[in-house]
Amino acid sequence: MMRFVMLSIVALAMSGCASNVVTDYNSSVVFGNYSSWAFAPTTEADSSSFVSLDGSRVRDAIERELNRKALQRVPQAEADLLVSWQIVPEERLEQTGLGLGFGFGSGNFGWALAAPPPVREVEEGKLVVELADSTSKEVVWRAASRRYLNENQSPETRRKLIDEVVTEMFTKYPPGLD
């Protein structure tokens, strides 16, 4: 019994240390050569006449974190890095209750019936941030969140989640310092 308790504690501790962000980068790039940035232009497909509420939150968080990295925001034509981001929609299944079952039998033989718990489809958004070299137009660094935004979150919860995720993303920039 004690062994089970210890294994449970170790498993919980390790899961608490798991990162909520996944990053990837071009290992041949010298990130110290970048000193300025600008948001990348939007394409016709994703441009609209306004910035969404979450979009504004993401832009503010990215700008704050890049300022902390001593990167200067400049006009797009003068930038070393172009920053793009998107909230990628993902659907997942979520159990909403308990399953039911019953059975009967005796000895080594019996029968049982069970119904799985009710399941519903939930749409969530995963934040992805990419930094591209403005000269080559190639992505040099990318971060994706393992935490999700969903429609049931309050505005304050969404803002805090976006701030936390973007902050964690940029703790891994520039790469190789951790």
Rank of each mutant, 00 (worst) to 15 (best):
V51T: 15
E44K: 15
F4G: 07
P174I: 05
T157D: 09
Y25H: 01
R92A: 15
E138L: 13
M14A: 15
E121H: 10
R59K: 14
Y148S: 13
N26W: 02
M2G: 15
G101I: 12
S27M: 03
P89T: 15
G125E: 09
G103I: 04
S56N: 12
A61M: 06
V83T: 06
Y173H: 07
S47W: 11
D46P: 02
W141Q: 02
Q95H: 08
G97H: 09
V83S: 03
K160A: 08
G16E: 05
S134E: 00
S154H: 02
R147H: 03
R120I: 10
E65P: 00
G55W: 12
V119H: 08
T157M: 11
G99E: 07
A114C: 09
F31M: 02
S136K: 09
W111N: 10
W141L: 04
D46G: 06
L113N: 10
G110I: 06
C17N: 00
E78M: 03
F102D: 05
R147V: 09
R159S: 10
V119G: 03
A18W: 06
V88R: 12
T23G: 02
T167Y: 07
T96L: 07
L53I: 04
A38R: 08
S27D: 10
M6L: 15
L81T: 04
S35C: 02
V30G: 07
R120A: 10
E164P: 00
A143E: 01
S136T: 14
E124Q: 15
I162F: 01
S56R: 08
W141M: 02
L93I: 08
M14D: 06
P117N: 08
A144C: 03
R120N: 13
L100E: 03
D46F: 09
R158A: 04
D60T: 11
E124V: 15
A79R: 05
A13D: 04
G97L: 10
S145K: 03
K126E: 12
V10L: 15
E91Y: 12
P75Q: 13
S56T: 14
E130T: 14
F104H: 08
I87R: 13
M14P: 07
D133Q: 01
W141T: 04
V139R: 09
T135W: 00
A112S: 15
D46I: 10
T23V: 13
V88M: 10
S28E: 03
V119I: 13
E63C: 00
E164Q: 08
S36D: 02
M14G: 12
L81H: 05
E164F: 01
R142K: 06
F50K: 05
A40S: 14
S145T: 06
L98M: 14
